[in-house]
Design a protein around this nucleic acid. Structure first.
Lengths: 240, 240
DNA sequence: TTATTGAACAAGATTAAACAAGTTCAATGA
DNA sequence: TCATTGAACTTGTTTAATCTTGTTCAATAA
């Protein structure tokens, strides 16, 4: 809850609770129809009084996210589309409204001690998923995404069976890996010769590079993804 | 505390208290979102009256370091690492830990119908504030920031009197213009010859460009700022 | 004169407790 | 088998006490 508290710093407790639960709903961790924890359970979880919990739930009810029924509990009644492939904090927008095609470059298990150290975990095995995105019209590659997922029992079958419906987000959700908070970096990188070959650009061309690390609510890293975006096709966009 | 008191000897008590607390905030002892001691606790800590404590807190609030809420307390709302005077959601981090110097290129009132149209407002007068940031060590320019603020009665004196404490954030805060939400875009721009001359780089060099629009809670635009950041010195960083 | 104090009261936030009322489910007994 | 009971859960509602900051004002000290 630490991250959420940061965002809601200086606000009243009911607002912090509403913010935390709203995030779980909008991120899809609590899907349509799901039952929230009972008020007494929330009392223990947030270490507040029941009155305070109830004010938070009332706020969520006012926002149209949940409905509450006597003797039963509170349920998610928000049917809006949850944002696929990550939370709605920063998205890369294609300038050309072109449809993008995705091609998988590789999907396998790798060992990466350096990344494990960087993430502060012991597990050195990762699922490596490299994908290249292309303009559906002319077939020109416009971005590369390299995902690294710490290998967990829930994900062991992924390299064999592939992604669920071709979506990494759905695969992670099905495995119970829901992103809660994280970090993103954005800077400029000059293309290496290998990447330039994949992307059909000149080596040394400046590309927008984003690196994103998402974590679970307990801080365990879920995914580290590095994207190379053709600046002619992409800009980063963020609403706050 | 002894040293602090010595340093602030001869100044008013509220100022001493503000100075002491400011030091704790700037040093990181009180991080973003942290709650300050209650006023009654501060009364005991500094052995002054509550009115005096409150004056000190009011001073900190004016400096943009804390916000205070009835029935809850005072909270640190100063991020400490924001490169520009803005909300602490996306920050450009200098790779070199160098201190940055800021030089004002211009501060005047301009007319910009295109921008007014883009922002969806009728007022075509803006305060234009262009600043260049330089490495304090070697004096090399590393970024340009161009702010455009819709001219309002509260801001009419700014071009004449300058910024409050040299800070745009404090000036806006004093004018009651508090940013509530907004948008940001980030992409790559090749330097124009004029910008290249200011920045001491070659024309056509790829720079990180961010454009940010902040609005008040009622949707009125407060500031539109375009930044050009030297990719050798800056990366964008976002926590979510 | 000015800064500071001390005190009182208002108003918002939070807690803790008690009780009412709706739901579920298993045990009970005819 | 079937209806009933009752315990154990749920949310709904109210109350009082205690914490917080907001505001005002007269007394006091430098």
């Amino acid at each position: 809850m630490a991250r959420r508290l940061l965002r809601a710093a200086g606000t009243a407790k009911p607002e912090q609770i509403a913010s935390e639960l709203e995030h779980e709903i909008l991120s899809g961790a609590l899907g349509f129809g799901a039952r929230l924890q009972s008020e007494n359970e929330l009392v223990q979880r947030f270490s507040v009084s029941r009155n305070t919990v109830r004010k938070g739930l009332e706020e969520l009810s006012n926002r149209g996210l949940i409905t509450t029924r006597v003797g039963i509990g509170s349920f998610v009644t928000f049917d809006g589309k949850t944002i696929d492939d990550a939370v709605g904090w920063s998205k890369a927008l294609a300038n050309a409204g072109a449809n993008a095609q995705t091609r998988t470059l590789r999907l396998e298990v790798i060992e990466d001690g350096a990344l494990a150290t960087q993430l502060g975990i012991e597990e050195m095995s990762f699922i490596a998923l490299d994908r290249v995105r292309s303009d559906a019209d002319n077939g020109q590659p416009i971005s590369i995404e390299r995902s690294r997922l710490p290998l967990s029992p829930e994900l062991e079958e992924v390299p064999l069976k592939g992604l669920r419906h071709g979506s990494l987000h759905r695969t992670l959700r099905a495995a119970g890996l829901v992103s809660h908070h994280g970090e993103e970096w954005a800077d400029i990188e000059m293309l290496s010769t290998e990447d330039a070959a994949i992307l059909g650009c000149a080596a040394g061309a400046p590309f927008l590079r984003t690196r994103r690390l998402t974590r679970m609510s307990d801080g365990r890293p879920i995914e580290f993804v590095t994207s190379l975006l053709n600046p002619a096709h992409f800009a980063l966009h963020l609403e706050f």
